[in-house]
Design a protein around this nucleic acid. Structure first.
Lengths: 217, 217
DNA sequence: CGCAAAATTGAATAGTCTCAAATGTAGTGG
DNA sequence: CCACTACATTTGAGACTATTCAATTTTGCG
């Protein structure tokens, strides 16, 4: 990310408080940004308020729509956060002259596309128990990657960075269904829920079975 | 696409018959390809056979996973088709030296990501009637873009390149539900279905209302 | 402690799916 | 040209899952 640090000079660092939005769906694409710290949700909504979380952005992730005129989604801070913001036109001019940066952005975008498409299978074809199980396993893997406590590939005890409604918006369910599935899993001793933000996976294998993981051939 | 034609020399053109697959989910990513002619579906499946179509690829589209080891989805021809195929390792070596090509690929990938995310809203939050209405409008727009008959922005009479089961796999519904929604729309005189592959949109505005299109602010 | 927000629980409903049967369509060979 | 077959689609009835709406409980915070 050498060139990115070079590029950083034409950007400016800003802070956002939890709940504030950086970009709105439907607005003109005026800025792009690199996340320095904090967690963001990317969302689209329907007129009547139904909302779908279409992505989560972590530190080092890139948000905004370069080379395009319109933002297709809203970007909102889930925690207090800091970003390095660039004007989109500056970025669009700068990028073609810095192929190494574009290459990295391409790789990130390809990864994001794979993730989005994997999630489409969940949204279109999985049942509520399958959705919740998949979500919990995915979170345990993602949060393990950040390397908090152990160097394990999976962390069975972790803090959820989302409220129940947000989990529902990620899975395409209602908050009530998410709640019911979680308590049911707790009652089956698959997981423990010490408080509403913490999850403890007691039986990862059984949870994986429930999640209908694709056959790793 | 000048550099692409240069690149084409290290690729070879192949033909696929309707129904044949070029790439399998879970397999190693050995090839990437440019579509010359024909239509493809990108799919992921669960163990028990449930399938989700996560994308459609048209001529000039790029398929396969560069800069990665595993294919996350299956690529299958929906019609007889021709492609220009490259070994992934060749492509991966070639690409970083051809920033203009990478730039175009980045733009395509960003567009794909936007489309995938828009579809996540449909899969996660829309009802069956909304899904079918959205699908019909999207198809009429996409097929109008190819410029068959008129230069209109929307073509109200068109041929569906999918069977009912494929429509179901695109929308995350069952074939029966798709069928019921279509006949219901036909009975309401919203659309006409001359034969099972042709659709005629009689009332685009009313269909747009049903589709719960996002507010274009 | 008391309040507002978040989460859980319950009962009833609606919507989609499942399973089964009937109908329609395209392609083949007589 | 027609009958026959295989396959795709439609239709129907019933079951079941997730939603809706309402009420209750829990949590975090001033």
């Amino acid at each position: 990310m050498d060139e990115l640090s070079l590029f950083s000079r034409i950007g400016r660092t800003i802070s956002l408080e939890k709940g504030q939005s950086l970009i709105w769906e439907g607005d003109q694409s005026l800025i792009v940004a690199n996340i320095v710290s904090g967690l963001f949700k990317l969302t689209t909504s329907l007129d009547d308020g139904r909302e779908q979380i279409i992505g989560i952005a972590y530190p080092a992730d890139f948000v905004g729509r370069p080379f395009g005129t319109t933002n297709e989604y809203t970007v909102t801070a889930l925690t207090d956060a800091r970003l390095c913001v660039f004007s989109r036109t500056d970025f669009d001019r700068f990028a073609p002259d810095h192929p190494e940066m574009e290459h990295k952005l391409l790789q990130k975008t390809l990864d994001e596309l794979d993730r989005a498409r994997r999630w489409m299978l969940l949204l279109g074809r999985k049942s509520a128990p399958e959705k919740v199980a998949t979500f919990l396993l995915e979170m345990s893997q993602k949060l393990a990657g950040s390397g908090c406590d152990t160097a394990d590939k999976q962390l069975n005890e972790f803090e959820l960075p989302f409220g129940r409604q947000q989990v529902a918006d990620i899975l395409g369910l209602t908050i009530e269904t998410v709640s019911r599935q979680l308590t049911q899993m707790k009652n089956s001793n698959l997981i423990d829920l010490p408080d509403r933000r913490h999850v403890n996976i007691l039986e990862p294998e059984r949870l994986a079975q429930i999640s209908s993981a694709q056959t790793a051939v």
